[in-house]
C-alpha cells in the first residue's frame, strides 16, 4: 500500500494559446472504498493562478491552507499579486522544508504570468513530493492515473489550442484516463484560465 495512492485522485494541467487549463477528478477514497465524490483537488491562488494537488487528502487540505496563508502574506508585503514563477518556487520550498518527512502530495501549478509588455504568457509546472520542479512546455500530470494521462495527453495535445479546444483536450484526456483507473473518477472539474476570465466547468463521468 502506497501512501500516495491511499486516497486516490488525479490532476492535470495543459498549456494553450494565451491560456492554460487545469483539472482534477472528484473522488475521495479510503483505498478501495469511495468516501466522497465531491472532493476537488484544484484551488484558486490568485485570479490567474490555480494549484492542483494529488496524493494524501489530509496533506492536500493542510497545504491548501498553508499556501493561502503564505500567498496572503506575500500579497500584503509586496502589495501585489504573486506571479506564477514565484508561486512555483514558493510551493517548491514549502515542500522541501519537509525534505525528510514529506507532505505526500504532488502539486500541479497553472497560471498566466505577466510579461514586461503587459501581455500574458501561459505557465505550468509540476513537482514531486519534495518540491523538485518540472517546468513543462506542454502538459503536466500527477496522481493515480498519471501514466494513463501521459499516454492520452501525448496523443491528443497540440500546440496553440484556443480556450474551448484546450478545454475539450484536457477534459477528454482526464476523463478517458480516470475511466481506466479504479482510484480516480466520479466526475471532474476543469478550469480554463484566460487573460479575461476563468471558465470553470464540472463534468459528469462514469460512476464505476
Amino acid at each position: 500500500m502506497s501512501i500516495m495512492e491511499y486516497n486516490g485522485g488525479s490532476v492535470i494541467a495543459m498549456v494553450g494559446k494565451n491560456c492554460v487549463a487545469v483539472a482534477s477528478d472528484l473522488r475521495l477514497g479510503n483505498q478501495a472504498l469511495t468516501v466522497a465524490t465531491n472532493f476537488e483537488k484544484v484551488f484558486p491562488i490568485t485570479d490567474r493562478i490555480y494549484l492542483g494537488m494529488s496524493g494524501l487528502a489530509t496533506d492536500v487540505t493542510t497545504l491548501r491552507e498553508t499556501f493561502r496563508y503564505r500567498v496572503n502574506m506575500y500579497t500584503i508585503k509586496e502589495e501585489r499579486d504573486i506571479e506564477p514563477e514565484a508561486f512555483a518556487h514558493l510551493v517548491s520550498s514549502t515542500l522541501y522544508e519537509r525534505r525528510f518527512g514529506p507532505f505526500f502530495i504532488e502539486p500541479v501549478i497553472a497560471g498566466l504570468s505577466k510579461t514586461s509588455s503587459g501581455a500574458f504568457r501561459p505557465y505550468i509546472a509540476g513537482a514531486d513530493l519534495i518540491g523538485c520542479l518540472n517546468f513543462a512546455k506542454d502538459f503536466v500530470v500527477a496522481g493515480t492515473a498519471s501514466e494513463k494521462m501521459f499516454g492520452v495527453a501525448e496523443g491528443l495535445w497540440e500546440p496553440d489550442l484556443e480556450p474551448e479546444d484546450l478545454f475539450e483536450t484536457i477534459s477528454q484526456t482526464l476523463l478517458n484516463s480516470v475511466d481506466r483507473d479504479a482510484y480516480s473518477g466520479w466526475g471532474a472539474i476543469v478550469h480554463v484560465i484566460t487573460p479575461e476570465q476563468v471558465i470553470t466547468r464540472t463534468l459528469k463521468a462514469r460512476m464505476d
Binding site: L28, N30, V35, N38, L56, A57
Partner: peptide
C-alpha cells in the same frame, strides 16, 4: 478520519 482527511458529505 484520524489522518485529518475531511470530506463534506
Amino acid at each position: 478520519d484520524y489522518l485529518g482527511t475531511m470530506a463534506t458529505v
